[in-house]
């Protein structure tokens, strides 16, 4: 018995002359056309290519959900962990092989609902991983449920009368938990996003970048925000870029029509695997 769909799917790949040739697997791009998850993926890849890093120098970890499927798009050591556990997976990778540049690319529901505890502890520990959170304010893949980043009053599958829970302000949370690099950019502002990705790679500790990538399929439809482009216009009207804003004042509010973007924390300090290296020296000298 066979139930598989016999749909013709062409094998997509970049031609040899493309700068991202051999870096991305286009057949695993399952995202809605116009979704900025793709832009985040290509931004990271472009930064890695510009830095001259080859796939043996980096690893990508993601959790579950729309953005969770993004790790499959990379032609590199890429890991699709369980729901919410992308950060501890990356922590294990980084500690076991400190030479790797480890990226966590996951969604807001994955990183802040089920994986919220891991996030704050990774900030505290200052593990040398770069966490890029695609914040779409909703659970896209499971059918548009209310997320910890859904604004008050927004309609989702599980808040049919409007959301009554206040959302997390992700950059304030990261800064308060002790992350050493924190930024927030709208997904369309690729130039500034890429600058921040470079800074995150340079930062010796835990880096967190929130990318605003509104979901038009679930969020846009339920809240009558229109298609991909209309939602980006809506987002653009709310975004205020303020590079000197302290993180606790970086407002994230749909009601006030104000989302403050910028780099809020850039405070490099010694990372966890460096500390472990020193700990080993101490332990070995005491043994003698």
């Amino acid at each position: 018995m066979t139930t598989s769909n016999e749909v013709f799917v062409p094998d997509l790949d970049y031609p040899e002359d493309h700068p991202l040739h051999g870096r991305l697997n286009l057949n695993r791009f399952i995202f809605c056309p116009g979704c900025l998850i793709g832009t985040a993926i290509t931004s990271i890849t472009t930064c890695l290519v510009e830095r001259g890093l080859t796939p043996k120098d980096y690893a990508i970890v993601s959790g579950i959900g729309c953005t969770g499927r993004s790790s499959g798009c990379f032609k590199a050591p890429a890991f699709h962990a369980t729901h919410g556990r992308a950060i501890p997976f990356a922590t294990g990778l980084k500690l076991a092989n400190p030479d790797l540049e480890v990226f966590v690319l996951s969604g807001d529901g994955d990183l802040f609902a089920i994986g919220g505890n891991h996030f704050i502890h990774a900030c505290r520990r200052n593990v040398e991983i770069n966490v890029i959170c695609n914040n779409n304010g909703i659970y896209g893949m499971t059918g548009g449920q209310c997320a910890p980043t859904t604004s008050i009053g927004d309609f989702t599958s599980t808040s049919p009368y409007g959301n009554i829970e206040p959302p997390f302000n992700l950059v304030s949370l990261a800064a308060a938990a002790g992350a050493s690099f924190v930024a927030r950019w709208p997904g369309y502002d690729t130039l500034r996003l890429r600058e921040s990705i470079f800074k995150a790679m340079d930062n010796p500790g835990f880096s967190f970048i929130e990318v605003l990538a509104p979901c038009f399929t679930q969020y846009g439809r339920k809240n009558k925000r229109g298609d991909a482009v209309k939602m980006l216009e809506w987002l653009r009207e709310m975004v205020v870029i303020d590079k000197n804003c302290p993180p606790h004042e970086a407002e994230y509010s749909h009601e006030n029509q104000r989302i403050v973007c910028g780099e809020f924390v850039n405070n490099p300090r010694e990372g966890f695997s460096e500390k472990i290296k020193k700990l080993r020296e101490t332990a070995q000298s005491r043994k003698k």
């Binding site: 970890v61 050591p77 890991f79 962990a81 369980t82 919410g84 556990r85 950060i87 501890p88 997976f89 990356a90 922590t91 294990g92 990778l93 500690l95 076991a96 092989n97 790797l100 505890n117 891991h118 502890h121 695997s273 472990i276």
Partner: peptide, 23 residues
């Protein structure tokens, strides 16, 4: 490397991660 994680969920996932780093 020894790490005391925040809970058992994180501990076991870190172990899978380390295993895939070849350790």
């Amino acid at each position: 490397s020894f790490i005391q994680m925040e809970d058992e969920l994180a501990s076991i996932v870190a172990v899978v991660g380390a295993s895939y780093a070849g350790v």
